[in-house]
Computed example of a mutant assay.
Amino acid sequence: MRLEAEERGDLLVVHVQEERIDAAAAIQFKDRMREVVVTPAPRVLLDLSKVTFLDSSGLGAVVSVMKLLGPERRLELAALAPVVQKVFRLTRMDRVFTIHEQVSDAY
């Protein structure tokens, strides 16, 4: 799972460099995120602009990362493709996460 991270003040931006977060990639995604979020930023922004498909396993992996961060750190999402956005909306997880139209909206 290819992830690129950059710090922007109190924000850690994690760019997902894969098209899919599905059952085959969910465990790798969680493992890589566990490595990346050791940076102690209070906010973590997940850039999903390259992700065109996310299934229930992928959604579960994103929720797991949110739980991993704990209550003192926020996981936010940005640049969701329409199909990915639909998954969050149908599961009402769009009410759990702060979702930004673009990565730059979170700065």
Rank of each mutant, 00 (worst) to 15 (best):
T52H: 08
L12I: 08
P82V: 11
V96F: 14
I99W: 07
M66V: 06
L90Q: 02
K67R: 15
E18Q: 09
L48D: 03
E4I: 13
V44S: 00
S56V: 09
E101V: 08
K50C: 07
R43Q: 10
D10W: 01
P82H: 09
E7V: 14
L54V: 09
L77W: 07
M66Q: 14
V84L: 06
T39C: 08
S64A: 15
A24D: 07
D22Y: 06
I99S: 05
L54M: 14
E72K: 12
V37C: 07
K30G: 02
Q28E: 14
S104M: 13
A26N: 07
F29D: 02
R95P: 00
M93S: 10
V44R: 04
L59S: 11
V63I: 15
E7K: 15
E7R: 15
D10M: 05
P82L: 10
F88M: 12
A24V: 09
V14A: 01
D55G: 08
A81W: 08
M66A: 15
F53W: 13
R2N: 13
L45P: 01
E4W: 08
R74D: 10
Q85H: 12
S49H: 13
E72F: 01
R43T: 10
R43A: 05
A81P: 03
L12E: 00
V83S: 14
T91M: 09
L75S: 02
V36A: 07
L80I: 01
E101R: 13
L48G: 00
K30M: 05
R34P: 01
A106M: 04
K67P: 05
A24C: 00
V14S: 03
G70Q: 10
S104T: 15
Q85L: 11
K67W: 04
E19P: 04
A23S: 13
D105R: 02
Q28R: 12
A106W: 01
V87Q: 02
G9Y: 01
L48P: 04
I99Y: 07
Y107M: 14
D47A: 04
V62F: 10
T98V: 14
S49G: 14
E101S: 13
L12R: 06
L46A: 02
V96N: 03
F53Q: 10
L11V: 03
V63L: 14
A61H: 12
E6H: 14
E18K: 05
